[in-house]
Computed example of a mutant assay.
Amino acid sequence: MKKTLALLFAGLAVAGLSAAPASAADHYVSGNVGLSWMNDSSIAADEVYGIDEISFDAGLSLLGAVGCDYGDYRLEAEIGYQQNDIDEVNIINEPEFAVTSGVPSEGNVSVLSLMANGYYDINLGGVDLYATAGMGVAQVSFEDFRYGDAIEEDGGSMDFSETTLAWQVGAGLAVPIGTNIALDARYRYFATTDFSIPQGKSDANINIASHNVLLGLRVGF
């Protein structure tokens, strides 16, 4: 049910963008590449033992978008991808419930997102300063995830994915470098709502959040 609602939300968001009065707007495409730093993810489970927190290494972030520019504001549909290696986990042990921190881990987490974004542009004499916010849907996938003894013993890994709602906010600068071409430098904070992952005999709740610094181009047409 949750996945169906998320996909429906994304479809409605993109449909709403498509229904905007495009005849009154300039159109553009954009692409950005940069670095992603994921926050540590805390896990909430019914059981009091198991994985308590997951830490990640810095990773890659990619964005592509098509939009409508109305002067002071813009609307766009964006597809994004980010991937980060899993660094370590903290574990609550049974039966003493002691916490073991910094347990070595392997694998990666990737996020594929579809967002509807709004922008507010401020012209600073040829350079545009902008603020942005967006909502949409994200598919979060853990691949080849294993930790502790499973690494030393070459044990099996865990693979799972979930679709959930997502949101983002950010700011940036756009500097013209040619006719209808601008260099785009931006920061964004991206986060998902809670979703479920396997945890022992039951599921646990977790969310993903990241800081992203990106550089790219925006091309008008």
Rank of each mutant, 00 (worst) to 15 (best):
K201C: 00
W167N: 10
A185M: 15
G156F: 07
Y189V: 08
S161Y: 09
G178I: 07
A191K: 13
A191I: 07
T192L: 05
R188C: 06
R186I: 04
P198F: 10
G155I: 04
D184S: 08
R188N: 13
Q168F: 02
W167T: 09
G172C: 07
D194F: 06
L173T: 03
A191H: 09
A171H: 03
R188Y: 01
G172N: 05
A182C: 10
E162M: 00
T179N: 15
S202C: 00
K201T: 14
D154T: 10
I181M: 14
S161D: 15
N180P: 01
L173K: 05
T163N: 02
D194I: 07
S157M: 02
G170I: 07
R188Q: 14
G172H: 07
K201I: 09
Y189K: 09
P198I: 11
L165Y: 05
T164M: 03
L173V: 14
Y189S: 03
F195E: 04
S161K: 10
L173H: 04
Y189W: 13
M158C: 00
F195C: 01
L173F: 11
K201Q: 11
M158D: 12
I197Y: 05
Y187V: 09
G200I: 09
F160K: 00
V175N: 05
G200H: 07
Y187G: 08
Q199W: 13
S196A: 13
A171R: 08
Y187P: 09
M158Y: 10
G170M: 04
D194M: 08
T163Q: 01
D159V: 05
D159G: 05
V169T: 12
P176R: 07
T179C: 05
L183V: 12
G178K: 09
N180M: 11
N180K: 15
P176L: 06
F160D: 13
A191N: 12
Q168P: 01
S196I: 08
Q168I: 00
T193V: 03
G172Q: 08
G200R: 09
L183W: 14
A166F: 01
L183Q: 11
T163H: 02
L173N: 08
V175G: 00
N180C: 07
M158Q: 11
T193H: 12
T179K: 14
W167V: 01
A182Y: 10
L183H: 10
G155C: 02
F195V: 07
T193F: 13
F160L: 02
D194A: 09
D159M: 07
V175F: 11
D154A: 14
Y189F: 15
F190D: 04
A166H: 02
G156E: 14
F160G: 00
G172W: 06
L165W: 02
W167L: 08
G156Y: 06
Y189Q: 08
P198A: 07
A174F: 00
I181H: 03
R188L: 12
Q168T: 03
A191R: 14
F195L: 04
T164E: 09
K201R: 12
W167D: 10
T192P: 04
